[in-house]
Design a binder for these strands. Structure first.
Ligand code: MN
Ligand code: MN
Ligand code: MN
Ligand code: MN
Lengths: 219, 219
DNA sequence: TAACAAAGTTAGATTAATCTAACAAATTTT
DNA sequence: AAAATTTGTTAGATTAATCTAACTTTGTTA
């Protein structure tokens, strides 16, 4: 059985290695809000438990077992977020912090009952895919709003950044999951993009458009 | 903010002091499954935090503040048990262990949303009263099945013992909350009581009847 | 009331998770 | 390739929660 802390470490590693497959000590420590020295200690422990591949001064990656365990935590996190949002009526910028705690509740049966109660959701309130009971994710969004050309229309699939400030900002612009977005123009001078959502136009930064995943208008 | 462990200590103290108002170190340690030496250390810490009244070699009691905090934990415990039972379809002997974990989730808002979602339940699946947001309980059951005279009919209000083995035994006899019970006879020789539930008769021990709270037939 | 038993405390050690300060290795720049 | 920077590790300390073994206090019994 993994401790609360160990679970947080492998979940952070999962996040870091989803794109780049390997991670570094400082990066991991930053992600978790601890000092690199602390992360080094934990890395030794996780290697001992065969959850990661790692050697001194080298790069870190999850073993198959580690990845599976991390996916289970991610599954719980996203199922609980969905519960909080769909059943209890929390806003989408409130669910993450509470799910950070709920994801550590130990009970296989609870996860499966919760999944059923929510009618086997495929996505969480932020548009992120929920791993299945085997710890697999099929859908991956790759296209961001910044990649859409002027004049085109797309649909918001998910948000990359889950921070409350960003989520509130997104909502303020009139955006939500599945909402249609038209790219009106891009300013070469200050790199802002003018988008139209439900008839309302807004100018947003590259940082903003980089953090919105989109799919084609009718996908 | 109290730690997970501190919360468990004051909850245990609440349970112990609900009837007798004071508790002893060994008793508390036994309740929590730790050694008396461990409990002594924690008692100093809880006194420091003004959650208990206690001095060396003396008896322990909760302060008003400590009692309130403990009641909040108990409230969460029972609300979560109700959720697991009512919404997720867990059996009444399965909910306690999971609620032991869920009771420590920190979020005022979550508790109130959960309460509303459950439609402000007054009792948990074991018939125990759920403290209100102010940490108060109004209803207290005092009469046990062992106190009912032969020939009388009563109704099961709650169970005193929440262990899975006892709960399964109770269900096996055909008993559940609000079920009517008729006292058929009491054997002077071996102290067994013959009860009738839904036409089915069973012989049960004093240990059994002491752990069932009842109210009058029409209360 | 002296002796014994029960209840409770203290001292000293352990484990998990964290930190700071100092050091070492690897990488990048000049 | 030497110097400088970045990255990562080690040593030593701290805090929370726990234990065992030895000791002290309180309460009971003869
Ligand atoms: Mn977490
Ligand atoms: Mn999410
Ligand atoms: Mn608990
Ligand atoms: Mn209960």
């Amino acid at each position: 059985m993994l401790s609360y802390t160990e679970e947080n470490y492998i979940k952070a590693l999962l996040r870091l290695t989803l794109e780049k497959t390997v991670a570094g000590t400082n990066e991991l420590a930053a992600q978790l809000g601890v000092k690199p020295a602390t992360a080094t200690d934990m890395l030794k422990k996780l290697r001992e438990k065969q959850l990661i591949d790692y050697e001194k001064y080298g790069k870190i990656s999850l073993t198959l077992e580690g990845r599976k365990k991390a996916m289970q935590v991610l599954r719980k996190h996203r199922l609980w977020e969905t519960f909080l949002y769909e059943k209890l009526g929390f806003a989408w910028d409130e669910v993450h912090d509470i799910a950070e705690q709920l994801e550590h509740i130990q009970s296989e049966k609870l996860v499966e009952k919760l999944d059923k109660f929510l009618d086997f959701p495929k996505f969480d309130p932020h548009g992120d895919a929920i791993p299945n009971a085997e710890g697999e994710i099929k859908v991956f969004f790759t296209q961001t709003l910044s990649q859409i050309a002027v004049g085109n229309i797309c649909r918001m699939a998910a948000v990359k950044d889950n921070s409350a400030t960003f989520l509130q900002y997104v909502a303020q612009v009139g955006l939500s999951i599945n909402e249609h977005i038209k790219i009106i123009s891009k300013q070469p001078y200050d790199a802002l993009t003018c988008i139209e959502v439900n008839g309302k136009q807004s100018n947003v930064s590259p940082k903003f458009t980089d953090n919105i995943f989109v799919v084609g208008e009718n996908e």
